[in-house]
Simulated scan of single mutants.
Amino acid sequence: MKYFGGVLLALVALTGCNRAPDNGELAEAEARGSRKAAEDGRIECALEGSKLFDRTCTVEEMSGADGAILVVGRSNVGYRRLQITTDGRGVVSADGAEPAKVRIVGDNVIEVAIGNDRYRLPANTGGAK
């Protein structure tokens, strides 16, 4: 919620000046909010079949017997465990119940779909086409 408060504050400040909002300034405010949320361990997600993403999910990295595990989710909905791979797939479902479908959605961002949940995670996509 802090993220949206910062953007809202920026919008209020701009409208108070009686001028049209500058798209560059808005983009910078959004980028600052995104960076802050990522630093706080927040990622974008769309859970339970939602079409819209919001930055309410958390991500934590843990060490597992087979390598690094990401625990992603939201406390009132549940969590998913993802195994980080080294073979170019990005991540796979560590829970085994449902497969993870991974696709690149932007520079250094992948979208992971498991069942009705989708998560956007930072990733090294530099070599992917």
Rank of each mutant, 00 (worst) to 15 (best):
Y3P: 15
F4G: 06
F4D: 09
G5Y: 04
G6P: 06
G6D: 12
L8G: 03
L14S: 01
G16D: 01
G16H: 02
N18Q: 12
R19I: 06
R19G: 07
P21K: 01
P21C: 00
D22L: 03
A27N: 02
E28R: 15
A29T: 06
S34W: 07
S34R: 11
S34I: 15
G41P: 09
G41N: 09
R42V: 13
I43Q: 02
L52C: 12
F53Y: 04
R55G: 15
V59T: 08
M62F: 14
G64Q: 02
G64A: 00
L70C: 02
L70G: 12
G73T: 06
G73L: 01
S75L: 03
G78N: 07
G78Y: 00
R80D: 13
Q83L: 02
Q83P: 00
T85P: 05
T86P: 02
T86N: 11
D87W: 02
G88A: 04
G88R: 04
G90N: 06
G90C: 03
V91Y: 02
V91Q: 10
V91S: 10
V91A: 06
V92Q: 13
A94T: 03
D95G: 15
E98C: 08
K101M: 14
R103W: 13
R103L: 04
R103V: 12
G106D: 03
I110H: 08
E111G: 03
I114W: 12
N116K: 14
Y119M: 11
R120K: 06
R120H: 01
R120L: 00
A123G: 11
A123C: 14
N124E: 05
T125Q: 09
G126S: 14
